[in-house]
């Protein structure tokens, strides 16, 4: 949604601290992402990577530090330029929704409580870009893990974001979906988009990643070349080089965000 070329840095976060349930999860984390750059946020379970991206998109409050999106505070314009892909939640919501309805919600924002014109067509186009236009009227809860993930990515991309923030988009995702995702991210990056992506391991996205930031217990322990070996100590069930079925549904509801990972 950029009008004029924007020279401001898409994302500059510094000294970010997040406290959840009385425990400090992030102890002053910094992260800078420039236009056309893809940065992987890596680390084991409980390292604080999900907490970091949730704080970056404003889904969690920070107790200290600064997060600047395109040079400014997070105002309406900045929100409009962020596309967020949260971790896929397999627990079904109380009422079914089809893929198009989910993607249309990506067209809303601060000061835009109503869907814009041609919202449905734009949503279907976003689904088609990820190769799943034919699923527009299917109940998202009955889609495969990879298809659900593509719906969530379409919901973020329909905003035409300049800063894309993804939380573990490759977990539980089949190979065709991984390819569709990698393709969509490459395209975004080639057009000058900035990408922050939480990953357990680089996998199919390795060629895309410019830098990695590794978190451990809420501290940044490494910035720079992606650590090639990191993926090998990823926990069982997170080997993403082959397709596998959805993990068992967590008991939490789709809007649960209390527990840090």
């Amino acid at each position: 949604m950029a009008d004029a070329p924007d020279t401001r840095t898409p994302l500059v976060a510094s000294g970010v601290r997040v406290v959840l349930g009385g425990n400090e999860i992030l102890h002053g984390v910094g992260l800078t992402v420039r236009a056309g750059e893809a940065v992987a946020v890596m680390g084991g379970n409980g390292s604080g990577k999900s907490t970091l991206v949730r704080a970056l998109v404003g889904a969690l409050p920070t107790s200290a530090g600064e997060i600047r999106v395109f040079g400014g505070e997070r105002d309406a314009a900045a929100y409009d330029r962020i596309g967020y892909v949260p971790q896929r939640v397999t627990a079904a919501a109380g009422v079914a929704a089809d893929a198009r309805e989910v993607v249309v919600s990506g067209l809303l924002g601060r000061g835009r409580l109503l869907a814009p014109r041609r919202a449905k067509q734009r949503a279907v186009a976003a689904l088609s870009d990820l190769g799943i236009g034919w699923l527009a009227h299917r109940n998202v809860a009955t889609l495969s893990g990879g298809q659900q993930q593509r719906v969530l990515i379409a919901r973020a991309l329909v905003r035409d974001p300049d800063l894309l923030i993804l939380d573990e988009p490759m977990s539980g995702v089949d190979v065709p979906s991984q390819e569709a995702l990698a393709h969509a991210l490459e395209e975004r990056k080639a057009r000058g988009g900035a990408i922050v992506i939480v990953l357990h391991e680089l996998g199919a996205l390795a060629p895309l990643i410019d830098r990695a930031v590794v978190l451990e217990d809420g501290y940044v322990t490494h910035v720079g070349e992606p650590p090639a070996a990191l993926g090998t100590h990823a926990l069982p069930g997170h080997d993403h080089l082959h397709a596998h079925e959805d993990p068992p549904a967590p008991t939490a509801g789709p809007i649960d965000m209390g527990v840090p990972t």
């Binding site: 949730r54 998109v57 404003g58 889904a59 997070r74 309406a76 929100y79 409009d80 962020i82 967020y84 949260p86 919501a93 929704a97 309805e101 989910v102 249309v104 919600s105 990506g106 809303l108 924002g109 601060r110 000061g111 409580l113 109503l114 869907a115 919202a119 919901r155 905003r159 923030i165 789709p254 809007i255 965000m257």
Partner: peptide, 23 residues
């Protein structure tokens, strides 16, 4: 009904709704 898109967004996925800047 008028605000159904926004109300859906918030009740369906509150975290994403927050990231879009919806109140």
């Amino acid at each position: 009904i008028g605000l159904r898109r926004s109300l859906f967004a918030v009740t369906h996925d509150q975290e994403f709704a927050r990231s879009t800047g919806l109140p």
